[in-house]
Nucleic acid binder design. Structure first.
Lengths: 256, 256
DNA sequence: GTCGTCGTTG
DNA sequence: CAACGACGAC
C-alpha cells in the first residue's frame, strides 16, 4: 500500500497539480490538508474522475482535511470526538482501511509564541498524542502537516528560527516527549541525516533550487505498522510546477 | 501592413492570450486598450519576447493604451497635447510609421447618460474628431475601443439599449455628424450588413456562442488610407479561450 | 508570494 | 464574469 500526504493550500486551486501528479503516483491513500473548501463546495466530481473516493471536512477559507482513497474506507472519524471543545473537525480526520488507521492532521501553525493559537497548537498535539496512545498497539499512521520541525536537520537555518512556532525549543521538547515516543519517523528510518524538506515558503525566492525549506509534514507510524514500512520519500517535483502549493507531497510504501 | 486592435482588459492578465494569439496573427502594429498597468510595471520583457516594441501610457487599475509594433515608430504622441485639461494620456496614443498614423483611443464609456463621464465622453469624441480633421488629408487609422455602437446592426438587441451610453441616439448622432464623415468604417467596407461584434459581456452567459455582443471597437481610416484597405475582420477565437478578455481582436490589412 | 475573503466596477 | 484594491493568513 502506498500512502501520501500533501498540504494543497486550497484544493480547488491545486486541482491542476493533482491531475498532473496523481495518475502516475500510484497512491492508494492520500491525506490532504488546507483544502480550504466547505463540504458543499468540495470538488468530488474531479476527485472521482481521478479514480478516488473522498472523506472530508472543510470550512470557508481556512483549514480543511480530506482523505482520498482508491478503496472505500471501513470507518471514518472527524475531529477528536472526545467531547472537549474545540472539536477541530477540519484539522483532523482518520480513516480505517482494514486494520490500518490513517490519521491525517493539520496541526495549528500557532502564529507567534505569545499568541493564543500557540497554546492551542500545544493542546492539539497533546490531544493527538492521547489519541494515538489509546491505539498504540494498533497499526496507525499519523500523517499530515504537523507544523513541527523536530530537529535542527529539519530547517535550513536553525539559528534564526529559535523563536519560530514550528521550531521553538519548547515545542520540539513537547513533540519529542509526548508524540515521538509513540511513533516512528519513517522518513528518518529510510533517510537518516539527509536535509529533506516538504515545505518551501512562497516568499523565499527560488526556495526549491536553493533548498531553503522546512520538514514539517510527516509520516509517523506505530511500531506494528512501521515493521511493514518499505520506503518513505518526499517528491519535490510538484513544488516546481506551475501554480504549486508551498508544500510538496510525501509518500510511504508498506508491505501488505 | 496588418494592424490589429484589442481591448485586453488588463495586459498582465491577458499575456497568456497574447502569447497564444500574436505569434500566428501576423500583426505588424497592435493597438491595445485597458492595459491597466502603470508604466513602471509594463511587461516590456514579455512583449519583446513576442518580437514587438511598445509605446505605452497607463495607470493603476484603469485605462491605459499601448501600441505594439514590429518596427520602431517614427513618432509617438500621448493624449491630445492641445493644452486642454484633462490630458487623457492613458486613453489616447498615436504612433506614426512612415506616412501612416495609427491613432489608438480608449474612449470613456460614460457610465450613465446622466453621469459627468458621459459629458466627458462626448468631449473626448469632439476632440478626437478635431484631431483627425486636422490631418484629414493624411493617411490615418483611428482604431481602438470607441465605446460607440454606430448603428442598430452593431448591437444584439437595439430596442433595450436606447438609454445605453454606447448606443443612445444622441451619442450616435454626435458620432455620425462629427466623426463618421472624416473616416471610413473599414469593417463595413468589407462586411456590409453582417452582425459582427467585438465585445461580449462577461455577465451574459455564453455570449459568444449566442452572438450577444456589441461592435464598439473600430478600424476607421481617412480616405487616402482607406484606398489601401485590403481586408478588415474580427477574430472571435480568443474570446473563446481560457481567461479571455471581454473584447476580441479586430484586424485590417493594407496594401503597401 | 500565493492563497482566501469582501466590496466595487463595467 | 472577471478585473481591481484592500486585508488577513501562513
Amino acid at each position: 500500500m502506498r500512502v501520501a500526504t500533501f498540504n494543497v493550500n486550497s484544493l480547488r486551486s491545486r486541482l491542476p497539480i493533482l491531475e498532473r501528479w496523481l495518475p502516475g503516483a500510484g497512491v492508494d491513500v492520500l491525506a490532504l490538508q488546507e483544502t480550504k473548501v466547505q463540504d458543499q463546495e468540495f470538488p468530488l466530481a474531479d476527485v472521482e474522475k481521478l479514480g478516488y473516493r473522498a472523506a472530508f471536512r472543510g470550512e470557508k477559507s481556512y483549514n480543511g482535511v480530506a482523505i482520498l482513497s482508491k478503496q472505500e474506507p471501513d470507518e471514518v472519524i472527524h475531529g477528536f470526538a472526545d467531547g472537549a471543545s474545540p472539536l477541530w473537525d477540519t484539522r483532523l480526520i482518520a480513516a480505517r482501511f482494514g486494520d490500518i488507521w490513517i490519521l491525517d492532521t493539520y496541526v495549528p501553525q500557532g502564529k507567534e509564541i505569545t499568541h493564543p493559537d500557540y497554546e492551542a497548537k500545544k493542546e492539539f498535539l497533546r490531544r493527538t498524542a492521547a489519541l494515538i496512545a489509546a491505539r498504540k498497539d494498533e497499526k496507525l499512521l499519523w500523517t499530515g502537516d504537523l507544523n513541527v520541525a523536530p530537529t535542527e536537520l529539519d530547517v535550513t537555518n536553525p539559528a534564526n528560527k529559535k523563536e519560530h512556532v514550528c521550531f521553538v525549543k519548547e515545542l520540539r521538547d513537547l513533540f519529542a516527549q509526548l508524540c515521538a515516543p509513540l511513533v516512528i519517523d519513517l522518513l528518518r528510518v529510510h533517510h537518516p541525516g539527509e536535509e529533506l524538506y516538504s515545505f518551501f515558503d512562497y516568499r523565499v525566492k527560488n526556495a526549491l533550487e536553493r533548498r531553503i525549506g522546512w520538514r514539517i509534514d510527516h509520516m509517523l507510524a506505530t511500531p506494528s505498522l512501521a515493521k511493514q514500512s518499505l520506503a518513505c520519500w518526499i517528491d519535490a517535483e510538484p513544488r516546481g510546477w506551475e501554480k504549486p502549493s508551498d508544500h510538496t507531497p510525501m509518500l510511504a510504501d508498506f508491505a501488505d
